[in-house]
Simulated assay, not measured.
Amino acid sequence: MTGSIHRRANLIGVLASLAMLGGWGSVAIAAEGVKSPDYEAIVAAPDRSDADRQTDLRRQPAKMLAFTGARPGMQVLDMDANAGYSTELLARAVAPDGVVYAQDSAEVIERFVKDKFDIRAQKPAMKNVVHVVRNFDDPIPPDVNGLDLITFFFAYHDVTYMAVDRAVMNKKMFAALKPGGFLVIADHSARPGDGTNVGKTLHRIEESTLRQEIEAAGFKLVSEADFLRHPEDPRDAAVFHPPVPVDEFVLKYQKPL
C-alpha cells in the first residue's frame, strides 16, 4: 500500500511539472480526476453563431484553448474582450463553476464594441462572464485576485497607440495572477525593427518588443506555439485584408511560484 501511495504521489508530481513546463494544454491533468475539457466539442457546440464559425477559420480556437489550458473552475481575465468571441469560448471551457472577467475600456466600447458584447452576453454560455469596464492600465477590479489565467488576444498592439501605461498594465496583470498562473498572449507579427511603430497603421507589433515589455513585469516564458505562424507573410501590410495569411505569434508566460 505504501509503495502504491508513493508511486501515485510521484505520478502527480511529474504531471504537475510537465504542465508547468509545457503548458496545461499539452498535458491531461489526471490527478484527482481533473482533466481538460474537450476543446473540439466546445468549438463545435451547435449554439455558436455562424459569424463565430467564420472567425474560427483563421483563429484555430480549439488549438488556442488547448494552449491556454482553460478548464472547469478556473478564474480567467480576458483582456480587451471586444465583442466577446474569445470570452465566450473561455466561458464554455471553465464552465460550470469557473468565471471569466471580460475587460474592455470605455474607449474601446464606444469606438468598436457598441452593443455587440451585450447582445452576446444574453446567451446561456455567457452566464459565468462578468463584463469589466476598466482602463487597460487598471484592468482588474480591486476585489479580484488569484487569477488562474489571463488572455490577451490580438490587441496588445492596440494599446501601443492609446493613452496606456503598458508597464503599469503589465505589472497589474502580474499581480492579479496567483503564483504559477499563466498569461497567454497572441498578436500579429511585425518586421524586425518595427517595434511598436506600426501598431496603428498595420495593427502589428514586433514580437521581441512585446516579449521585452511582458518580461520586464516579471513574467517567465514557458511555451510558444506555431499553429498561427505564416512565414510567407512579409509583415508589411495591414492585417485586415492581407494578400497572404497573417503571421501571428502565440506565447505562454507564467508568474513564478
Rank of each mutant, 00 (worst) to 15 (best):
G25E: 08
D52K: 09
R58T: 13
S17C: 11
P72N: 11
M74Q: 08
S26M: 12
D52C: 00
M64I: 06
M74E: 02
G73V: 02
D80T: 11
L77S: 06
R48H: 09
A66P: 05
Q54S: 14
S86M: 14
D50T: 14
T68H: 06
R71E: 00
D78T: 03
A51H: 13
A16E: 14
Q60Y: 11
A81D: 04
L89D: 05
D52E: 10
G69W: 00
Y39R: 02
D50G: 14
G69L: 04
G98D: 03
A51D: 13
D97A: 10
A41E: 10
M79A: 02
E40C: 06
G23C: 10
E32V: 15
A81S: 13
D52L: 08
A95C: 01
Y85W: 08
Q60A: 12
G23H: 03
G22V: 08
Y85G: 04
D50I: 13
L65P: 00
G33F: 02
Y85P: 05
A83C: 11
P37W: 03
G25P: 04
L57R: 14
G69C: 01
A41G: 03
V27H: 12
M64S: 04
M64F: 11
V94M: 03
E40K: 11
Q60G: 09
P96G: 09
E32H: 12
P37I: 01
M74G: 09
A93W: 01
V34K: 12
A51Q: 12
P37L: 07
A45M: 10
A19L: 07
E40F: 10
A83V: 10
R48M: 06
R53E: 07
